[in-house]
Design a protein around this nucleic acid. Structure first.
Lengths: 204, 204
DNA sequence: GGCCCGCTAGATAGAACGTTCTACTCGTGA
DNA sequence: TCACGAGTAGAACGTTCTATCTAGCGGGCC
């Protein structure tokens, strides 16, 4: 435990929770396991998150959502156009999957599927995060010349392809779905741009 | 409990498990809840599934997989071509989502995401089921005139879009993602057919 | 110095978990 | 008539769960 003193306890708990929740789900992860993984005393979990597991999960989902959004915006900002941005993002996802033995995928998907029908508070958190991502892609699509109505639809489709690719890749333990879906997502973006080319370049 | 005597206990357990697993996930569903929901004595669960929760889940996943495959094949068999079949399937999914208050989606997705990194036996079960679905779509795509290499890729993309649409629709509690993804999936199929039109009709 | 408070640390409670076990009912075949 | 096995029924076991509680550490402020 060398760096245990450098990173604040609250952040260690948050980080360990994020990793465990996204790999094992909400119900499959215990607070004791989180405390152990975070090298934090059990009592500290309730000290920093008085609302218990629910508040912790809510924070984890929203924090992970912001992080993933920032990741997308960084990649999109560095890419010359939207199709390239989407392709790069999928490629990065495939790399991460392979590097973590198909454990680290979407930061909220596993929990989202699990609690959608049973836990309204957390469902709302996942919905907010998804909407924030959709908004970013939609904005970039509009900036790239896609009409408003199509932009929303395009964002939904691209995000769905990504989420589906995460699930299939993790289940099949291959990046084959992610690779195939990368091409499909880029194709969807391209066809939306071809249909209404107004400002061919510009991203973010 | 009127029909409790008509349907065999084993089937009632299987059916109740399928419903609960897909809505609440594997870890989030208890065997006691399953027994209660199935109107079966608790001991019967272990009588019919001596392997316990794992064997029960394995059976549920594979049975649900066969059921969903049959559903696809029924829809595909009734449709005049592959794009129509895919569109009809997505439309049916949207209807089911709305009718069940966004609870009933993919029979295995929730569990698949949850156990992919933690439960090798069940991960293999979900992988087998996904492969069976991919095989069916791939076969239909080839029959419709899509080249072999593209057919596999198309099947992966279409399934990913479907799974992603399920997740987003359940989280956002709208069929908007499913509706948008239906169009995207049909577009993907169409573009694969246009690129190599050999036998424009024929499905299944 | 003495006090206070953020934080650490973990014991503890009570419920729920998966699993195992025994006892019982009832229809069938010898 | 009796034995037997399939299935019913649920108690009990040890573990783990979330959550609460008390106690103590240690640095900053009066």
């Amino acid at each position: 435990m060398p760096n245990a003193t450098e990173i604040p306890t609250r952040d260690r708990i948050l980080y360990a929770s994020a990793e465990l929740f996204r790999r094992q789900g909400y119900a499959g992860t215990g607070l004791k396991q989180i405390a152990t993984e975070a090298r934090a005393p059990f009592g500290s979990v309730y000290h920093f998150f008085p609302g218990g597991k629910e508040q912790l999960a809510d924070d984890v989902l929203r924090t992970g959502g912001r992080f993933f959004l920032a990741l997308y915006e960084a990649i999109a900002g560095a890419a010359p156009d939207l199709p390239t941005a989407v392709g790069d993002f999928f490629a990065g996802a495939a790399e991460t999957l392979e590097a973590t033995d198909f454990a680290d995928a979407c930061p909220i998907a596993t929990v989202a599927g699990e609690i959608a029908s049973t836990h309204e508070v957390l469902r709302q958190a996942t919905a907010d995060v998804f909407e924030s991502w959709l908004g970013a892609v939609e904005r970039d699509a509009i900036a790239a010349g896609v009409p408003r109505e199509q932009a929303r639809s395009l964002a939904l489709s691209v995000l769905a392809v990504l989420e589906g690719a995460f699930l299939l890749s993790r289940s099949l333990k291959t990046t084959e779905p992610m690779d195939a879906c990368a091409k499909a997502a880029v194709a969807l973006v391209r066809s939306a741009l071809i249909q209404q080319p107004t400002t061919p370049e510009a991203t973010t």
